[in-house]
């Protein structure tokens, strides 16, 4: 018995191999729609306002007003203070409300505060909680504390699903990404998520592959399906298709759904819509044809 190790060079080479798949025609159209349906449309800024959020919620429900048969996004992802408003704006739609919690993005608050924040977000109606792990404790080797805290947060989520953000940019090695993935999955995460978006590098293909492989091993051993969410740094439709290729070839058909795979992004929505418009109408849109968000 031993900890899993990951060979970075070989993992990166495998991740790069997915980018050489050629996705054209009907598979491109289907892939773009799938990616759009997996989007957690995100705004996590100190300058967020109710008006900004209303625009985002509208966009999540109808990514392009004039293209009727586009799917809606999976969720909007906001700070806890906006959960109630988002819930109200999204009433009657199937777009979920995800809330970051646990002193996002650093996690540097007393556990009691982080748990209270989690409860507040859940009570306000959040369908999903995106928590951060204590990277300090994790890097110090105190895995027990990190696992305990994930379990405690989970216990405060109510019926909300728990996404555990590993902040892979701060973990640095693939061995540690793998270790954190295994730990979070074992502690009860419904999803594991790469990044807060506040630290560079955010999501990469290589890091996401390591996480998909952790999910695969857990599934093969237990039958439980855990979701994966790369977040930050995925800006183009082409990148999104590369990720979908990687999911398809690593975990298979069952994970090609918003229930088990998400993109945490904001700019990506516009590129997906632009590419979809081109596929559906044969015409390219200009950047000013889609809404800023």
């Amino acid at each position: 018995m031993r900890a899993r190790t990951v060979d970075r060079i070989a993992a990166d080479a495998r991740a790069a191999s997915f980018t050489r798949r050629s996705i054209k025609k009907e598979s491109k159209l289907a892939g773009l729609k799938l990616a759009l349906s997996m989007l957690d449309l995100t705004t996590l800024e100190g300058k967020d306002t109710p008006e900004k959020l209303r625009a985002l919620c509208r966009k999540a429900q109808r990514p392009a007003e004039d293209l009727a048969d586009l799917p809606h996004c999976a969720a909007v992802c906001v700070y806890p203070t906006f959960v109630a408003l988002a819930k109200e704006e999204l009433q009657g739609s199937r777009v979920k409300v995800a809330s970051v919690a646990t002193a996002f993005p650093s996690g540097q608050s007393p556990l009691a505060v982080r748990l209270a924040e989690t409860r507040a977000a859940a009570d306000a109606g959040a369908d999903e909680i995106d928590m951060v792990i204590q990277r300090g404790a994790f890097l110090a080797g105190d895995y027990e504390t990190v696992a305990d805290e994930i379990e405690a947060v989970k216990a405060n989520c109510g019926s909300a699903r728990l996404k555990v953000i590993l902040e892979t940019g701060e973990l640095e090695t693939y061995d540690l990404v793998r270790r954190a993935s295994d730990l979070a999955i074992e502690a009860g995460a419904d999803f594991i998520k790469t990044s807060t978006g506040k630290v560079a590098p955010a999501a990469t293909m290589g890091v996401t592959l390591v996480m998909l492989e952790a999910v695969r091993d857990h599934f093969l051993a237990t039958g439980r399906k855990v979701g994966v969410k790369p977040a930050g740094g995925i800006r183009t439709a082409k990148q999104a298709l590369h990720y979908l290729v990687m999911v398809k070839e690593t975990l298979g058909d069952a994970w090609l759904t918003p229930d088990l795979f998400r993109f945490g992004a904001s700019a990506l929505a516009n590129d997906l819509v632009m590419q979809l418009r081109k596929e559906l109408t044969g015409r390219y849109a200009a950047s000013y044809d889609v809404t800023e968000s």
Partner: peptide, 13 residues
């Protein structure tokens, strides 16, 4: 045992 399904949920043209 749990099995992964590599079918045609989303195939390449």
């Amino acid at each position: 045992a749990p099995a992964l399904d590599f079918g045609s949920a989303w195939d390449y043209a």
